[in-house]
Design a protein around this nucleic acid. Structure first.
Lengths: 131, 131
DNA sequence: TAGATGTATTGACAGTCATCAATATAGTCT
DNA sequence: AGACTATATTGATGACTGTCAATACATCTA
């Protein structure tokens, strides 16, 4: 229940759905795609992986692993590990051409998390405006 | 350098800034706010904290810690720990009123990370459209 | 002042993660 | 076939993290 501090020091209970206001705390359903979104955010929450995503975002086309590796002062297996995390989160696609492997951003999946965060922001702005 | 697979099996080097195309891989500067953004993403990349943010996002006003705690099957110190992580990332503000502490979303900081992700998405779409 | 209550902090512990060295795999070239 | 190259995988290790129990702190009330 949402509580409000009163003059006398008591917390008064605000009933559910007051005057068309936003959802009450106790009502908020657990986001069914929570784990999925946490996986996406976790994949992005690393300096190396975020930089890789930025590289892929700014590139014309897919990028060769060899070109990604040279951007970092990290061993090749470490870069390969980070690429695997991005793959497992479905944030990137890979394609093998000869000896080289090329990675590219999965824009649709990437948009999912971006729009979710924007959605939370909108909800907050809406809630703030109703005050 | 960006490499392209040719018929003969060689990787040819594409010069920087080809025909007004997007930035070359080797040119991409290191994002100066990288660590800051990683901290924000790390703060969000946890199921408990993401749910807390969703609660704060959907609420009319700030929310009492006591109301947050009841939403989870976790001890009070654990919730307090997660709130501290969100505070350290500057994602939330807190205010003490009597015995209770109320948390609210820092919309401006939240917007920073949302717009950054959207920006990466736009860049990717732009790059994709130029192909 | 003493007791009660809500929340933050501390310290410990188990689980996860980033990194590296070594190795495996797959493709190319001679 | 054999040498070479690019990348993935495995296993080990130190660092980080989520959780809890115990405690501290601040505020209210009797």
């Amino acid at each position: 229940m949402t509580a409000t501090r009163q003059n006398n020091g008591e917390r008064t209970i605000i009933p559910l759905q007051v005057a068309g206001c936003c959802d009450n705390v106790a009502m908020s359903p657990k986001n069914p795609r929570l784990n999925e979104q946490v996986k996406l955010l976790s994949a992005l929450a690393d300096p190396t992986r975020l930089r890789i995503v930025e590289l892929l975002s700014g590139a014309c086309d897919s990028i060769c692993v060899c070109d990604i590796t040279t951007q970092f002062e990290l061993g090749q297996p470490t870069i390969s590990h980070h690429l695997k995390v991005l793959r497992d989160a479905n944030l990137v696609s890979w394609e093998k051409r000869g000896l080289w492997v090329y990675y590219s951003l999965n824009r649709d999946v990437f948009e999912e998390i971006a729009s979710h965060l924007s959605g939370l922001l909108s909800a907050a702005q809406l809630a703030g405006a109703q005050r």
